[in-house]
Design a protein around this nucleic acid. Structure first.
Lengths: 232, 232
DNA sequence: CCAAAAGTGTTCACGGTACACCCATGC
DNA sequence: GCATGGGTGTACCGTGAACACTTTTGG
């Protein structure tokens, strides 16, 4: 982005993007936060995000900021709400377009960079105090995730490519905050015929190892064309 | 808004709001459009909307534009997506926050004003060519409406305060684009116990007049607190 | 008396839910 | 051999879907 002197007839809000990045770990839902290296709210935890370039698509800006500040790349990303409250930012009027992202925790060693002093995963159950209105944004994203998780096959974005059914169930339980019946869950998931059984099993567990499955994107697309609706 | 000379270190997109206003009439779903009085796309039909003031909330801007351009006030309004494509507007980069609104057609005599040359209702089945990417926005809003109509009691926003069950059914059929069974529909709706039977009936119909009902907002709120989920 | 829509019950199939026991593995 | 989670089947209930006839009113 080129620094210069840009003039307009009317005052304009600044435009940013922010990302609520979810990951799952041992049946716990986590959110990726950065520790701010700059004022305002220096030293506080916040969502990764930043300004939208004048020649940059909104989603591209979200991906760029995510990559720059946390190292996270190539993830499921979806816009869910735009926040424009007058007092969001103490400096000036800033409108932010919020996205939620889903990542396989195992794939992403996060690392802070640019204006982020640090980056780390926090359990959604114990978030620190967040900068700006980011707490509100996280809460809204979580609500959105809960709704979408049941209607679209996005849970798989949060797990390793190969996973045990109990891991999938644990994820649903963590996000929906309730326990599910094991038999019913397995029956329903397998009946949808969206998972391929691999010939691998879990490793490094001190009990019987579970069979691993893989989500079949192709099958899902084919079924959806035929009018099938994912529902869990 | 005060015209002046505003300077920034980095170029900023302009920020607007646009509204997809739905109304129902004789079992047909309609959208409110304005005919543009200014370039670009002068003379073409477009969504009501306009620039967000620097000290103005997003939703407030949407309501103001709606009122100014079409005379519509005090309606159900909900944000659903933000559009930031680089080529949306031929003049410069403009990001727009889109809302959908639901109005009782009977309550609103629309009238064009400010930079709208004309305002009129169009059946969603036969929209004219629209300016900018507004066709895409309408399509997305319609999709959103279809989803929300089944999960939240928003259909009542589109009908007169007192309505016949067949009118409600006609609305659902129009939006969802499929026929519904009369007996099952009435059973389901009445079973939710959200409607109050009035002692009025339809007038000016040349057949048996239907009883009129009213949506009971209070009851709905009470039920929702008790964990009830609207679903049709 | 005819047209047009209002109003009303029952049956059936399916999917959701509840529920308990044996099995494989690591220590 | 024991602890830990993996893996499996059946019975019941409630909800959604299909379906046709009588009633009221206006013209």
């Amino acid at each position: 982005m080129k620094k210069g002197d840009y003039r307009y007839d009317y005052a304009r809000p600044a435009l940013t993007v922010d990302c609520v990045v979810f990951g799952a770990d041992a049946g716990e839902l986590r959110v990726l936060l950065i520790e701010r290296g700059l004022a305002p709210f220096e030293g506080q935890w916040a969502l990764p995000g930043g300004f939208v370039g004048i020649g940059e698509e909104l989603e591209a800006a979200a991906r760029r900021e995510l990559q720059e500040e946390t190292g996270v790349e190539k993830v499921f990303l979806e816009q869910f709400h735009t926040y424009g409250g007058l007092a969001r930012d103490p400096r000036e009027r800033i409108v932010t377009v919020a996205y939620y992202a889903l990542v396989k925790l195992s794939d992403h060693r996060v690392q802070a960079a640019t204006d982020a002093r640090d980056a780390a995963w926090f359990s959604v159950a114990e978030l620190p105090k967040l900068a700006f209105d980011h707490r509100q944004i996280v809460d809204d994203a979580l609500l959105q995730l809960r709704v979408q998780l049941r209607r679209r096959p996005i849970g798989f974005e949060l797990l390793p490519k190969k996973f045990a059914l109990s891991e999938l169930q644990g994820l649903y339980e963590a996000v929906l905050e309730r326990t599910l019946d094991k038999r019913n869950f397995r029956k329903k998931v397998l009946a949808m015929d969206l998972l391929d059984e691999t010939d691998e099993v879990q490793k490094d567990v001190n009990h019987r190892a579970a069979r691993l499955y893989r989500f079949d994107e192709r099958k899902y697309r084919r079924l959806r064309k035929a009018g099938f609706d994912f529902e869990l």
